[in-house]
């Protein structure tokens, strides 16, 4: 429910500067917002619109196209179980059933304590490692039911918080370009843009 924090606004401006056209920073900024709050709030979208010279509707239009952006709160841990073909062949659907049973919610729902949200997702590019799932986009290859159960215990008790940041953070390493190294020729010769 928040606009970007002052620090994140600084980060946002750094990101915007990397693109020949500011609108290209829209998805990266939505990730910044989601990293800040765990989801993308209306206020954040409005703020991002202001930073990029877009209407809030334009921000929402882009944001809502993409699966990863959550327009409502989700759990601290997003459990994405792949049920697509390669995983289906090797028990992906059964794994999902187990996950749903273990966490007591169906795919699409969040546990009452706000810890876990389960999703039945499309292929996550780990097909030779089926069945598999991701927790906050961290992979668990060829995972067994028992392994999943102990993963849940670990997450509940905070034992793996180093390894798996809360929902919203994808990469924990950001690209940094020292000012004297940036070539900065991207926009040269681009026709003027009229919005």
């Amino acid at each position: 429910m928040a606009r970007l924090s002052p620090d994140n606004e600084v980060l946002a401006r750094q990101i915007i500067a990397r693109y020949p056209r500011s609108r290209s920073a829209l998805i990266p900024l939505l990730h910044v917002a989601q990293e800040q709050d765990g989801w993308v709030s209306d206020d954040a979208m409005e703020h991002i619109g202001e930073l990029l010279g877009l209407t809030a509707a334009e921000v929402l239009g882009t944001c809502s196209f993409y699966e990863m952006f959550k327009l409502e709160r989700v759990g601290t841990y997003l459990v994405n179980v792949c049920t697509n073909i390669s995983c289906q062949l090797l028990g992906g659907e059964e794994l999902l059933e187990h996950v749903e049973g273990r966490l007591g919610v169906k795919a699409g729902a969040t546990t009452p304590d706000g810890m876990f949200t389960v999703e039945d997702v499309e292929c996550i590019a780990a097909c030779t490692e089926a069945p598999c799932l991701q927790v906050n986009y961290r992979y668990f290859h060829q995972i067994t039911n028992a392994e999943f159960d102990s993963l849940v215990d670990d997450l509940r008790s905070g034992r793996r918080s180093d390894e798996i940041p809360p929902h919203g953070t994808t990469t924990r390493i950001r690209q940094h370009v020292p000012a004297d190294r940036w070539a900065g020729l991207g926009a040269e010769g681009l026709p003027p843009e009229v919005t």
Partner: peptide, 11 residues
């Protein structure tokens, strides 16, 4: 109109 206040939402 230059008033992008309506948009496609969702996919």
């Amino acid at each position: 109109a230059g008033d992008p206040l309506i948009t496609f939402i969702g996919r």
